[in-house]
Computed example of a mutant assay.
Amino acid sequence: MTPSPHHPMRSNDLQRTAPLGGLTVLELGHSVAAPYAGLILAELGARVIKVENPATGDYARGWGPPFLGDDATVFHALNRSKESVTLDFSDPAQKAALKRLILDSDAVIQNLRPGLLEKFGVEADALRREKPELIWCDIGAFGKSGPLASKPGYDPLAQASSGIMSITGEADRAPVRVGVSLVDMGAGMWTVIGLLAALCERGATGTGARVSTSLFETGLAWMTIPLAAHAVSGEVRKPQGSGLSEIVPYQAFEASDGWVMIAAGNDKLFGRLCEAIPGLSEVGRDPRFARNRGRVLLRDELVPRIAAAIRGLSAAALGATLDAAQVPNCPLLRIDQVWAHPQTQAVGILTEGAGHQWVGLPITLDDARPTAGGAAPALGAHNASLLQDHG
Rank of each mutant, 00 (worst) to 15 (best):
I277E: 00
Q240C: 11
G208R: 02
Q240K: 08
L215T: 14
M189W: 05
T224D: 12
M185K: 10
D267A: 10
I262V: 15
E246S: 15
V260F: 02
S212R: 12
E254P: 04
T205P: 08
L227M: 14
E282R: 09
T207H: 10
D286F: 08
G203T: 06
E217K: 05
G284E: 06
A187P: 02
I193M: 14
Y250W: 09
V260L: 14
P249H: 13
M189K: 08
Q251H: 10
T218Y: 00
T191P: 07
L244P: 03
S233N: 12
R202F: 06
G208N: 04
S242I: 13
A252W: 01
I277C: 01
A197M: 12
A197R: 05
V176M: 15
R272E: 06
M223Y: 02
R210G: 11
K268V: 13
A187S: 15
E254C: 13
S212H: 13
C274L: 04
T191K: 05
S214E: 13
N266G: 04
A228D: 10
L199N: 12
L273M: 04
P278D: 12
W259F: 14
F216H: 11
V176A: 15
F270Q: 00
A228L: 14
E275N: 07
G188S: 13
G208H: 03
L182A: 09
C274R: 01
K238H: 07
A263P: 03
R272G: 10
P226D: 03
G186F: 01
A187L: 05
A187N: 04
R237I: 11
R237N: 12
S233H: 08
R272Y: 06
Q240F: 12
A209C: 05
L269G: 01
A198L: 04
F253M: 06
G208K: 01
D257K: 04
E282M: 06
L199W: 07
R237W: 14
V178H: 11
E217L: 05
E254V: 14
A263V: 07
G208F: 03
L273V: 01
T207P: 00
R285W: 07
I277V: 15
S214K: 13
I225H: 12
E246T: 09
E235M: 15
V232M: 11
I262S: 00
E201F: 04
G265N: 11
S245F: 07
G279C: 10
A264M: 08
A228V: 09
Q240E: 14
L220K: 00
Y250D: 00
G284R: 04
E246R: 10
G219R: 00
Y250L: 02
G208C: 07
A198N: 08
M189C: 06
R285L: 10
V248M: 07
N266T: 09
F253K: 02
A276H: 04
L195Y: 08
G271E: 12
L269N: 00
A276D: 03
E246H: 09
D286L: 10
M223F: 01
E282Q: 12
G271M: 03
S181I: 01
F216L: 12
W259C: 15
Q251G: 07
P278A: 05
Q251R: 11
S281W: 06
S256V: 11
W222L: 14
